[in-house]
Each structure stands twice: as C-alpha cells, then as structure tokens.
Amino acid sequence: MSRAVIVQAKRTPIGKKNGIFQSLQVHELTAPLLRHLANGIEEKVNDVIIGNVTGPGGNIGRLSVLEAGLPLTIPGLTLDRQCSAGLEAIRMACYLIQGGAGHCYIAGGVESTSTSPYTKRARFSPDRIGDPDMIKAAEYVAQKYRITKDQQDEYALLSYERSWGAFEHGLYEEEILKVGQWHRDEELFKKRNMMALLKRAKPILAGDSSTVTAANSCGIHDGAAAALILEENTALKLGYKPVLRFVDSEVAAVHPHYPGAAPIPAIKMLLNRNMLSIEDIDMIEINEAFSSKVVACALELSIPLKKVNSSGGALTLGHPYGASGAILVTRILHEVQQRKKAKYALAAIGSGGGIGLAVLFETIHE
C-alpha cells in the first residue's frame, strides 16, 4: 500500500471578521498558499482539495487553482463538513494516495466570514431532533459533562498564555505565510488583560446554570491553511523531507446537541484500532471552538492538559471554520520538528451536526 506523507504545510495569518482580510475573497486567501506549496512541482499536482463552510458557493478548490495560476489541468475540489472541512480535506488526500489515485495533492481549508454572502448559518439538524446554535450546543456539553464556568475560564486563560508565549518565542513564524503586508495573527496585535476579561464576562445565554461566555469561546475569523501531501517514495524522489506519515483516521457522530463531544468517540475508536493509548501520543491538537469542548475531551479521554494545544489555539487566535482543521495539522507539522523524541501526533475537531473527526500521524525524524 502506498503511504501518504505531509512534507510542507502553511497557513495565512488569522484575521478578525471585517478585519485585515475584509476585502479578500476565499480564493484570494487560498491562492498564495497553493502557489507556495506547488512551487517547482506544479505539473505533478494531481488535485487540490479545499474545505469551506460559509460560501460563497461554487467550486472554491477549482477557483483557487485558477487564481493561483497553477496548471489548468488541476481539477480542484471543494468539500463541506462544517468545522471539520479542512481536516477532512487532508484526510481525503491521504486516502486517495493510499488507494493509488494519485501521488501529489494539496489539501486544506479556507474561510472568509467577512465576505460571505450568507447572514445565517446552515442547518445542522432537523427540528424534530433539535438544531441548536453552537453557543447553546457548547452549553449542552458543559452541562452534560458537569463543566463549570471556572473550569472553562481556567482553560481559556491557559490557552491565551500559551498562544502569546508561542508568538513571543517565534513559534508561529514558520507556519505563517505572509499575505500582502500581513504576517501576524490579528488577535496578537495587542495584548489584553485576559484574567480581567474572564472575570467580567457574563454567560451569553440566560439562566443561572449558563457557563459559556464570549471570553471562553472563540471569535469569528478569516484565514486559510493547506498541506502538501505526497506518496512517500515520490516525496523522496522529488527531494522532499517527509515530516508526518498518515497512519489512520476516524470519523464519528453523536447527538447534534453535543458537537463539542464528538471528538471523544472518534479518538477512542482511532486509538483502540491502532492499539494505542493517550500515553502513546506525544502531541494532541483539538480545535478550541469553546473551552467546554476541550475540557470535556480532556476529562473524558484522560488527556493531561500539557499534551493538548501546547502552543495555544483558536480561543485566542480565532476559528476560521473551514480552515481550522488544516491549521491543526500545520501546527503539528512545524512543532514536531522541534520535538525530536515525538513519535505520534493526533489532530481532532468537532463540527456542527455532531460530527467528530480525528487523524493520527506518525512523525518522521532523520
């Protein structure tokens, strides 16, 4: 069986909605990444797979290929698995390589909430089951797993300190591709008193038991990320150094009221099938849409917080929906190169509708 390896991954800076990327369409955010990753091997790219959630519709994958000036022979594909879309695109490319469909793919995700033509989100679930907005769903997760506001605030503060620490130590520099004049995440333009914000923030929903606040939730953002994925022997022949080898993945679904808990069964099944435990995984990235989600996953899976999102995440930097899963992989690729003893890394994300996706990688060291 052919083995899929990731040799490069990059992301744009992450911008606030109506912020630094307010005038860029989705294909204009994606195109610089495609040009960078395909540089020198343009004729060898079999396809480009792009995840996207909020529009504008059409085949953004193909549009991005054309915007980037890549060969007209590259088809381009767009997929939507809500917030899992970017990670699903990478997963799909890995399986296409394993199945022998091709040897070279660029896969990732993009979101431009600033230019989206849609003012309302898509439906996640039929009314007979219930179709909660993500904030209410995050509250449901907090209630189900008995996660307090204090626990959520503590994790949000930890994530904030980690994100700023990573930024100040230059850990984000290698993963970011400059777009126009921008080379820094917009949320990192100015430091805030996060502890004071957390104490001051009130629950968004009414009710004495509500715990989810604007301060322990992610914001709405723009951004893109993508990875260059090759068949392993092809990568070596082309002179690339493989960094991550795709091992396996799992997608699972839970009740649509609890999307934040959906990574839990996905991770459990993935580890069980590969006869691994949490102790065997050296680096774990779980998308930080809400503190309640990460805390629930950590508690239910017995994950030490030192293993989860050790360089921060979406609670501070932002969550450009379709791109976030690919941002997780980009973070892993760059960080494991600094961890010479790391063997396994895992990326996981939950999505609207109650879908959880987890992908397992083996790190490759010289």
Rank of each mutant, 00 (worst) to 15 (best):
D282K: 02
S84C: 14
E139I: 12
A214S: 10
T73R: 02
N46K: 10
R128G: 05
A225P: 12
V254K: 01
N18R: 12
K237N: 14
V45I: 15
K178A: 15
R81L: 10
A89I: 11
R339S: 00
L157R: 11
I332C: 11
Q181P: 13
G76P: 03
D248S: 12
N233L: 14
A101W: 05
I327W: 05
F290R: 14
H255W: 05
L305W: 09
I327N: 03
V336T: 14
M194A: 10
E279Y: 03
N287L: 13
L230V: 05
I106H: 13
L276Y: 07
E285A: 00
D150P: 00
L357V: 06
V359N: 02
I278P: 07
G350W: 01
H27M: 01
D153Y: 01
R273W: 03
N39M: 08
N46C: 03
A89V: 10
G354K: 11
R184I: 15
Q181Y: 05
T213N: 01
L158K: 14
Y172P: 04
N39R: 15
S163K: 04
K268I: 05
G15Q: 07
S249C: 02
I267P: 07
F21V: 09
K343V: 09
K341C: 06
C94T: 11
G352R: 12
P256G: 01
K136T: 12
L270K: 02
Y155P: 08
C94Q: 04
V7S: 03
A93E: 08
K191Y: 02
N309P: 06
I74A: 03
S302P: 04
Q98M: 15
R81W: 01
N287Y: 02
I332A: 03
R35C: 07
K10V: 13
R11F: 07
K237G: 06
Q337V: 04
L157N: 02
G57I: 13
L270I: 09
L230E: 14
F361L: 10
C104F: 02
I220Y: 14
Y172A: 08
L70A: 06
S310Q: 13
A358F: 10
Q25Y: 01
I229H: 04
V294F: 00
S84N: 15
N39I: 01
I229L: 12
G354M: 09
T213G: 11
A226S: 14
A206C: 02
G99I: 00
K340V: 08
E43H: 06
V308Y: 07
K202P: 00
A214K: 02
G51W: 06
R184W: 07
G165Y: 03
R192S: 00
E139D: 09
L197S: 06
A206D: 10
E43K: 15
R121N: 13
I90H: 09
Y95N: 09
T213A: 02
I97P: 01
I6C: 06
C104W: 05
G99N: 13
K10A: 13
E154Y: 03
P203L: 11
G58C: 13
G207D: 11
P203C: 12
G207R: 11
R192A: 09
